[in-house]
């Protein structure tokens, strides 16, 4: 049976169906779960999709962390379930303190949409366990607040614990230490600013997002052998 992935939808989320399509192309079933639910159902993994949850009012993710579904996401994460926050989802996970640090406005104070090249920095995370350190992945970015920041101790800890998952080769937003994605201490919760769901099809210019979703399924204990 296909893996069942809960894709969280807040009012203002806009990438949820793109994530469902991307999951479908690696053989998994994305199931959209509205923010007012209190249960994820029986899910193998969770994706907090991108967009503008609650309009990004106050600041991105600040209101979303109080949505009813977030309690369920928190317990799922605490039990070791794989959770991926993409873009606004990353912002939500930092606001919910499932990941350290914060995302501030891009250096240059402009929204940026375009291609980015990421370097895989660790294979020990829920989205890189099928990748190799040093792999270069072309994955689009699309954000105004993608400039990752944290205090010095946190940064030292992220480095020491090998929790920086991917870095930008050419930093587009001023992120500290070129950080594009990080994971928690348990390595099951990952925040990622770029959009791997936008890199799943030759017609769209890159298929480098596949390895991230395949890794997510591996982290969920799904047998990927038929997918290859």
């Amino acid at each position: 049976m296909a893996a069942d992935i809960a894709v969280i939808r807040f009012p203002g989320t806009n990438c949820e169906f793109d994530v469902v399509e991307a999951l479908g192309s690696v053989g998994a079933t994305g199931r959209v779960v509205f923010h007012d639910e209190t249960s994820l159902g029986v899910a193998d993994a969770v994706v907090v999709a991108g967009g503008f949850a609650h309009g990004d009012y106050l600041r991105p993710g600040a209101i979303a962390r109080f949505s009813p579904i977030m309690d369920a996401v928190r317990s799922f994460a605490e039990q070791g379930g794989p959770v991926l926050g993409i873009c606004n989802g990353f912002q939500v996970l930092t606001e919910a303190h499932l990941l350290p640090g914060a995302l501030q406005k891009n250096a240059g104070l402009k929204f940026r949409c375009g291609e980015a090249t990421l370097r895989v920095e660790t294979a020990r995370s829920a989205i890189t366990n099928r990748a190799t350190v040093g792999d270069l992945l072309r994955i689009p970015i699309n954000h105004f607040e993608g400039n990752y920041t944290c205090d010095d101790d946190t940064l030292a800890e992220l480095r020491a614990d090998d929790r920086i998952v991917v870095r930008y080769v050419d930093n587009p937003n001023g992120s500290v230490d070129d950080i594009a994605g990080i994971c928690n201490a348990g390595r099951n919760v990952v925040g990622l600013m770029p959009h791997p769901e936008r890199a799943m099809h030759e017609l769209l210019g890159s298929t480098d997002g596949r390895v991230m979703f395949e890794s997510l399924l591996s982290a969920a204990g799904v047998d990927l052998s038929p997918i290859g």
């Binding site: 806009n14 793109d18 402009k110 929204f111 940026r112 689009p140 936008r198 799943m200 769209l204």
Partner: peptide
């Protein structure tokens, strides 16, 4: 003109070839 359009999300919905 990419100064203009790089400020727009032009990829949402996975249709933009």
């Amino acid at each position: 003109t990419s100064w203009v359009w790089s400020q727009y999300d032009h990829m949402l919905f996975l249709n933009t070839v």
